[in-house]
Design a protein around this nucleic acid. Structure first.
Length: 100
DNA sequence: CAACACAAAGTAG
DNA sequence: CTACTTTGTGTTG
């Protein structure tokens, strides 16, 4: 799985530029590491769109492909998580990947 | 086009 | 530490 593959998948959806950038930025998070919503937003080119990043994660069209569970709050907390298991499952997954 | 929603961040107390 | 304000983009009507 590489960036081009993800871009190709994203191309199948009617996504806005913001969503694509955010998803790619999230996908670019190295395994075993975490990034804050703000960091992802900044990486995507929108340094003040941390909340919007949350909106994108919520709709994440490539949920299994995009490691949205590696995106946490700047405080080091996990924040909320709309996926199965809620933030508890998120933390568990992060622990499995040694991200925490 | 306007109003509402969002898994945050920042600032003030 | 808690509470309030600010902020940017997506979605829906």
């Amino acid at each position: 799985m590489d960036r081009k593959t993800v871009l190709r998948k994203l191309g199948r959806y009617n996504l806005t530029g913001f969503q694509r950038k955010v998803l790619i930025a999230t996908f670019s998070i190295p395994k075993g590491q975490t990034r804050s919503y703000k960091q992802v937003a900044a990486m995507a080119g929108y340094p003040n769109a941390a909340r919007a990043v949350g909106s994108v994660m919520k709709m994440n069209p490539l949920a299994p492909t995009i490691p949205c569970h590696r995106v946490i709050k700047s405080s080091g907390e996990t924040g909320n998580y709309s996926g199965k298991g809620g933030k508890q499952g998120k933390v568990l997954m992060l622990k499995k990947e040694h991200a925490i």
